[in-house]
Every structure is written in C-alpha cells, then in structure tokens.
Amino acid sequence: MGSKIADWLDERLGWRSVWEAIFLRKIPKVNWLFTLGSATLFVAVNQAITGILLTLYYVPTPDHAYNSVQYITNEVAAGWLIRGLHHWGASAMVVLTVLHMLRVIFLGTYKYPREITWFTGVFLLIIVIGFGFTGYLLPWDQKAYWATTVGTKIASVTPGIGDWILRVMRGGPELSAVTLARFFGVHVWVLPSALMALSGLHLYLVIKIGISEMPGKDD
C-alpha cells in the first residue's frame, strides 16, 4: 500500500531521484566535527519555528511590546519554552556558526572548489550577527533599550556619515517607536529572507560539491 502511493507520487513528482541525489549520495567518511554545519541549520530552523510562534502574540510598539512579552512568558501555555528556545537558540546560533567556521578554517575546507560556499558562509555569519543585534531590542526592557542605544551610538563613530547612519538605524535622532518597528521589520522579514536565500545557496553548493574529507598530513 505504502509503496503504491510512493510509486504513484514518484511518477508525478520524481521524488526518488531527488531523494537519491540528496540523501543517498556518497560522501567521504568524516568525524563528528562535520555535524557542526547541520547543527547550525537545525538551530536556524529552531529560530524560525519559535520566532514565527512568538509573532503570534508579540506586538512591536513601545506601549505593548513589553506587556506582550510578559504575557507570552507568564500567561501563554509553553510560552516560557518557546521564548526560552528562541533566546538561547540565538546564543547557540552564534556559537555554532563560529565553531563551524573555525572548523572550516582549520581543515582548509574553504579552498578549491568550495570558495563560493565560503563567501556565502561569511555573509551568513554577518546575517546571524544582524539577527542578534535587531532581536534584542524587541522585548523593550531596560537591557534592550540601553544596549541598543549604545549599539546604534557606536555606529555613529563612522567618519563622515556616522551621524546619518545613526539616524537611519534609529529612524530619527532618538530611540523611539520608529526604531522598534524597523528593528522588528528587519528581524522578521529582511534578515530571514536573506538568510533563506543565502543558506539555500550554501546548501546547494554543499550537496553539489560534497563535503570535504579530513585532510591527511600530506594534503
């Protein structure tokens, strides 16, 4: 019965060839260090799922943001878990991205033919940092407010256009409702789009070229 449905679907979708290309492909024997990339992917998925769930209740305005976060944490069933997973997932994301990158550097994996994979990886790192920066204004608590005040202020040191950058980031001279709204927009629309596009490319290259083997002493 199951195989009949599978056949029926395969005739129309051709999923078996996709399955074979992605999952049944042969790759060199590697050690546990090579799970760092997929671990990062897992945490990214975790952030997406919990992030989407958080937006069900979260309101990005200064008069409601804090209350809605409090509501999520204290009132909604499993709200503490969803928010906790998202919060700690953010830290895990940074840790895993950096560890993944260090592994690539130490094993020389960025070399031919995987240069493009590396470039997209560096962009992905910057995006992850962007997630962290825009994300922690959103609860609108003391830490959020002041750390973002300082964070945006730091950008204004840029010679020449610093003040302009500051105003663009904050949407005005001060941290305000406008800042919160645009940080929210960037955090849930702009960065996720970029993340999906770039990680799509990153994964395509990984599958297409294959993961590298452990280099021997002579390689």
């Binding site: 799922i49 769930l53 009132e75 909604v76 069933a77 499993a78 709200g79 878990l81 969803i82």
Partner: peptide, 14 residues
C-alpha cells in the same frame, strides 16, 4: 516542537 507549539497556539482559547 509540535506539542508545545499546539499548546502555545490554542492556550488563549482554552
């Protein structure tokens, strides 16, 4: 993910 997510979504209704 699924069980907490469902609880999370339907909680205000219950």
């Amino acid at each position: 993910f699924g069980i907490p997510a469902i609880a999370y979504i339907i909680s205000p209704a219950t």
